[in-house]
Design a binder for these strands. Sequence first.
DNA 1: CCGAAGGTTGACGTATACGTCAACTTCATC
DNA 2: GATGAAGTTGACGTATACGTCAACCTTCGG
Lengths: 185, 185
Amino acid sequence: MRSGRHRVSSEVPQAGAQHRDDGTGQDKPLKSASKTAPLSQFDPERLYGIAELAEEFGISTRAIRFYEAKDLLAPPRVNNGRVYTRRERARLKLILRAKSIGFSLAEIKQYLDLYGDRGEGRPLQADFLAERSGALIAELEEKQANIAATLRELRVIRGECLQYLNGNGTAGAGTKGGASNKTRQ
Amino acid sequence: MRSGRHRVSSEVPQAGAQHRDDGTGQDKPLKSASKTAPLSQFDPERLYGIAELAEEFGISTRAIRFYEAKDLLAPPRVNNGRVYTRRERARLKLILRAKSIGFSLAEIKQYLDLYGDRGEGRPLQADFLAERSGALIAELEEKQANIAATLRELRVIRGECLQYLNGNGTAGAGTKGGASNKTRQ
DNA sequence: CCGAAGGTTGACGTATACGTCAACTTCATC
DNA sequence: GATGAAGTTGACGTATACGTCAACCTTCGG
């Protein structure tokens, strides 16, 4: 799947997925989590490694680091390794969802700001947020209309094909001319 | 607007838009159309120049030529100049619509085939068309769901901001934390 | 005939979104 | 201590989607 076309998993990973399973039937926290005090400054919550997230979302670790370089993500470090919290994971999910519907990474960065900053800087003014989210809503509604129109057309095309295959072919169904006529203005 | 983010005009150009208006109140066909016999092999219909389409759709002539180089368009030639028929214009519209919702040009090329080939090659088998359009429908439905989810969240964010601005702020509305909580799994 | 306008082509550049690779660090295990 | 696994970084490469530019052609009006 190329840029702009990622499948976004809608399923939450099973409990324990983030932990190293040592075969005893009990999950253990990431080794870095078990060894370092700094984690106490985070919510005591599930943590993910970069490879875990990459596999979960079907993308590369390179892509995840790239998003960090583009300031879309900001995973804390433990012994120089990235540790992804639920919040970072949720942001990654938003990133991939937005990418799948045609937004560039620069646009996604702005869009993520509507969901709350990453803990630095002061919150955006409410009026600015309202305006920005309003503009984005309008843009998404346009994309939604584009998709709806495309779906309508494709459903007609597919319906005609299925009719034809079932021996109920109409004059238009046996050719693609009928389908293409439907796209005429 | 960058790649993947074109606004697609939904308005049809006004009658006569494709014709040179010589000030007599009557439209005249494009000069190339009026001078050359080869046009008789096309439908006697409205024709567009590349600059006309570029302006209508808000893209560059370079982009339109690029789509031709990528076999998404195939405008006939008149005196070495490209002449775009209604059909090519409709394809361009489909191209831009698909781009706006995140498809690559390679994917769009395949998708355009569902709308009818450009006159060469034999028609795709009905079962293949049904399968291809079914797959595309599934993909579009996923994008549609992504957009719907994003819209729900953004409407909540915007609603809270507007409430806050109207002096009806709730505990969650004054901060972005409330909004970001809503994205939690 | 000349200049302007609109268009053509090929080539190179830019921006985006990563992929690939080498060299390195840290940690667990043997 | 050695080794393997997992991860890091920087650098360069690839693919996509055009933008920009130069050089050229055709048509039309003056």
